[in-house]
């Protein structure tokens, strides 16, 4: 047991004083004392409900949830038989890739900017936090309101600068699936930026000043310093932010639901929205099946992402 601890210690760069009074018996149980509460909470609040979800994907449910017995993989075959599923899956892919990558790029810039010292920075940072502090559902509702054809704030603004006639069909942004989906992605980026920027700002603060001094002494330009010094040092916080964003964006529900309900038809639905649509339509088993598929998808995406970004390279 001690060896585990020792091995962990030995990867530390510098020698350290010998541990005093290690007790093999206790140390075997030590991990449980530290991480046990976390595991218990996860098991209770997440794992058990997930088991229930997986179970319910193999049951035949009546419209209002009466359990009519097992039906094996029927729900899954029905789900894969849905003619709208392929479009929904493709849209989910676009949704995740576009929202996450735009969020990350914009947040890097925003973080850099808000990390500068300028008068009123505190207040500006408060403003930046607003979309994070407010409920995403309400943000989606106000965006929908601002996009109303005829009298929405954004349309009035666009009309004033002469870009769009506020009463024209174009101004009915959420009425068309393409423009509706683009606006929904914009809102998703909008609500993801504060958290991401803040994580990057926190990351920027762990970059030791000596590193910059060294770069400066080497005569590196500011741009070069940023790409060869700052960005690599930001890697841990960027990774955390990206992974969290991938998961949250993939599972994001209220934006699309409040703005277009996934419509017209299912033309702005992602898998998460479609799951809810199925549930509302009384296809409980199918909806649960999609939840399971949804989970498998996100797990594949996240681990592929971690693999690509060589998350493990340092840990092992």
């Amino acid at each position: 047991m001690t060896t585990h601890a020792e091995r962990g210690r030995s990867t530390r760069p510098r020698p350290r004083p010998r541990r005093r009074g290690s007790r093999p018996v206790l140390s075997g149980l030590a991990p449980l004392a530290w991480i046990g509460p976390a595991i218990a909470l996860i098991a209770f609040a997440v794992l058990w409900p997930v088991v229930k979800m997986a179970q319910s994907s193999t049951r035949h449910w009546s419209r209002y949830g009466v359990d009519l017995g097992s039906n094996g993989t029927d729900n899954y075959s029905k789900l894969f038989g849905e003619q709208d599923l392929s479009g929904v899956l493709m849209r989910t892919g676009i949704w995740v890739v576009v929202v996450v990558s735009v969020t990350m790029v914009v947040s890097l810039g925003v973080a850099q900017l808000f990390n500068q010292r300028f008068p009123g920075r505190t207040v500006a940072r408060w403003a930046l936090i607003a979309p994070w502090a407010a409920s995403v559902m309400m943000t989606a509702i106000i965006f929908k309101y601002m996009l109303y054809q005829g009298y929405g704030f954004i349309n009035i603004l666009l009309d004033d600068v002469g870009l769009v006639d506020r009463g024209s069909p174009t101004a009915d942004w959420l009425g068309h699936s393409t423009s509706g989906f683009i606006w929904e992605m914009a809102v998703a980026v909008f609500v993801s930026i504060p958290f991401t920027s803040y994580t990057v700002i926190a990351g920027l603060q762990t970059v030791p000043a000596e590193v910059y001094e060294a770069a400066k002494m080497d005569g590196a330009s500011k741009v070069r310093t940023y790409f060869s010094v700052t960005l690599p040092m930001l890697r841990p916080s960027l990774l955390v932010a990206a992974v969290i964003n991938v998961m949250n964006v993939f599972n994001s529900f209220p934006i699309i639901w409040e703005m277009t309900r996934g419509g017209p038809g299912y033309d702005t639905s992602t898998t998460t929205v479609f799951m809810w649509v199925l549930k509302k339509g009384g296809h409980i088993g199918e909806s649960a099946a999609l939840s399971v598929v949804n989970f498998l998808l996100v797990i594949v995406i996240v681990f592929a992402f971690l693999k690509v970004s060589k998350w493990n390279s340092e840990a092992d």
Partner: peptide
Amino acid sequence: LATKLTTAIQNNDAPDLFEGGGYADVAAQ
């Protein structure tokens, strides 16, 4: 409304009285 009723029924916890619609399915069961 329907989602709440469904969740309750799935857990065998239907309310005594429900006002809304959808009697046909639960009556059939």
